[in-house]
Simulated assay, not measured.
Amino acid sequence: MLRHRFQPGRLVAGFFLTLAGVIYAGDAGGLWETPWFVLIPLVVGGLCTAGAVGVLAQAVHRRRGALRTGRDEPRADLPG
């Protein structure tokens, strides 16, 4: 299996969409009654949260990459 970078935004999106699926399946199976308007904020809020987590993870990834390559430190040949 090829190694790839961990993407927590996708994990969060998958969690919220799975939760929405479980709520919908429980309602369809007759285990509980769920109003129709409950799933819309859940999915939209989950996608917004996933987007924020993805942006934060990208910023952290770039910052860690800059620290590993030494780009964050001032260069010796530049004054100041």
Results as ranks from 00 to 15, higher is better:
Leu56Glu: 08
Gly14Ile: 06
Leu17Gly: 03
Phe37Ile: 05
Ala76Val: 03
Tyr24Cys: 15
Gln7Asp: 15
Arg75Ser: 11
Phe16Gln: 05
Pro35Gly: 10
Ala52Leu: 15
Val53Asp: 02
Val43Gly: 03
Leu42Thr: 05
Leu56Trp: 10
Leu11Pro: 01
Leu67Val: 08
Val53Glu: 02
Ala76Glu: 02
Glu73Phe: 02
Arg10Leu: 15
Gly70Leu: 03
Pro35Thr: 00
Ala50Cys: 05
Thr34His: 06
Ala13Asp: 04
Gly54His: 06
Asp72Asn: 11
Asp77Ile: 00
His4Ala: 13
Val43Met: 07
Leu2Met: 12
Leu42Asn: 01
Leu78Lys: 07
Pro79Val: 00
Ala50Gly: 00
Ala59His: 10
His4Ser: 15
Glu33His: 13
Asp27Tyr: 08
Ile40Gln: 10
Ala13Ser: 08
Phe15Ser: 09
His61Glu: 13
Thr34Lys: 11
Cys48Asp: 12
Arg3Tyr: 10
Asp77Tyr: 08
Leu2Ile: 10
Thr18Gln: 11
Leu39Cys: 01
Val38Asn: 06
Tyr24Lys: 14
Pro35Lys: 09
Val38Ile: 13
Val60Thr: 12
Ala57Cys: 04
Ala50Lys: 02
Thr69Met: 12
Glu73Ile: 06
Gly30Lys: 06
Val53Ile: 05
Arg5His: 14
Cys48Gly: 12
Gly29Asp: 02
Leu31Trp: 14
Gly29Asn: 07
Ala13Cys: 04
His61Tyr: 15
Gln7Phe: 09
Arg5Glu: 13
Val60Met: 14
Arg3Gln: 11
Glu73Gln: 15
Asp77Ser: 08
Glu33Val: 14
Gln7Met: 13
Arg71Gln: 11
Asp72Val: 04
Leu19Trp: 00
Gln7Ser: 15
Leu17Ser: 03
Arg10Tyr: 14
Gly21Glu: 03
Val55His: 14
Thr49Leu: 14
Met1Asn: 09
Gly29Ile: 01
Arg68Asp: 10
Gly26Cys: 04
Arg71Leu: 11
Arg63Pro: 03
Ile23Trp: 07
Ala50Trp: 01
Gly26Tyr: 02
Pro79Thr: 01
His4Arg: 15
Pro79Lys: 00
Val38Met: 10
Ala25Met: 11
Pro41Phe: 05
Pro8Tyr: 00
Met1Ser: 13
Ile23Pro: 03
Arg75Asn: 09
Thr18Cys: 14
Thr69Trp: 05
Leu39Glu: 01
Leu67Thr: 06
Leu47Ser: 04
Arg3Glu: 11
Gly29Arg: 11
Phe15Glu: 07
Arg62Gln: 12
Ala76Thr: 04
Ala57Phe: 02
Pro79Ser: 02
Asp77Thr: 04
Arg75Ala: 12
Val60Gln: 15
Asp27Pro: 02
Asp77Leu: 07
Gly45Gln: 07
Ala76Lys: 00
Leu39Asp: 04
Gln7Leu: 14
Val22Ile: 12
Arg3Trp: 09
Pro35Phe: 04
Gly9Tyr: 01
Thr69Asn: 14
Ala28Val: 03
Ala20Ser: 10
Gly65Gln: 13
Trp36Thr: 11
Leu39Lys: 05
Pro8Lys: 06
Ala28Asn: 09
Val22Phe: 13
Pro79Ala: 05
Phe16Tyr: 12
Ala13Glu: 05
Arg5Asp: 11
